[in-house]
Computed example of a mutant assay.
Amino acid sequence: MPQFVVERNIPGLGDMDKETLREISAKSNAVVASLSEPYTWITSYVTGDKMYCVHEAESADAVYRHAEKGGFPADRVTEITTLIGPHSAAR
């Protein structure tokens, strides 16, 4: 199934406490559970006022539906086409 990077602009995100972030996570989990299509939230990275999330879904439209249903911003959704890392240098 395709994976997508979701860029979310959320002012003040980097200053949110762990409880607030836990509540956001719980809401996202509830939305994923309510979807009638295959969907997996892989992980998210918080960087100041932005969050970069990796989600697995059948389409970018499905990612936008998740965001809308949860009330989350989804400023940009981009399909991941290739993964590289230290392992990529091996022959």
Rank of each mutant, 00 (worst) to 15 (best):
M1T: 05
M1Q: 03
M1P: 11
Q3F: 07
F4M: 10
V5C: 14
V6F: 14
V6N: 12
V6M: 12
V6L: 06
V6P: 11
V6T: 11
R8T: 06
N9E: 14
I10H: 04
P11N: 02
G12I: 08
G12M: 09
G12D: 12
L13V: 04
L13R: 07
G14V: 13
M16Y: 12
D17C: 01
K18F: 14
K18M: 15
R22E: 15
E23F: 07
E23A: 13
E23S: 11
E23M: 12
S25G: 04
A26N: 06
A26D: 12
A26I: 02
A26L: 13
A26W: 05
K27Q: 11
K27D: 10
K27L: 13
K27N: 11
N29W: 08
N29I: 03
A30C: 05
V31L: 01
V32A: 09
V32N: 08
V32M: 03
A33F: 02
S34P: 02
S34Y: 02
S34M: 05
S34I: 01
S36P: 00
Y39T: 04
T40N: 08
W41H: 06
W41A: 08
T43D: 13
T43A: 14
Y45P: 03
Y45S: 10
Y45G: 03
Y45C: 09
V46T: 13
G48Q: 12
G48H: 06
G48L: 08
K50D: 06
M51A: 11
M51C: 09
Y52W: 01
C53M: 12
C53N: 12
H55C: 08
E56G: 07
E56I: 04
A57F: 00
E58Y: 07
S59D: 00
A60L: 01
A62P: 00
A62D: 00
R65N: 11
R65V: 03
H66S: 11
A67V: 05
E68V: 05
K69G: 02
G70K: 00
G70H: 00
G71I: 03
G71H: 05
G71M: 07
P73G: 11
A74C: 04
A74F: 06
D75R: 13
R76Q: 15
V77A: 04
V77Y: 01
I80Q: 12
I80F: 12
T81L: 08
T81D: 08
T82L: 13
L83P: 08
I84L: 14
I84F: 14
I84E: 13
I84W: 15
G85P: 04
P86M: 14
P86S: 14
S88K: 03
A90L: 07
A90V: 03
A90P: 00
A90K: 06
R91F: 09
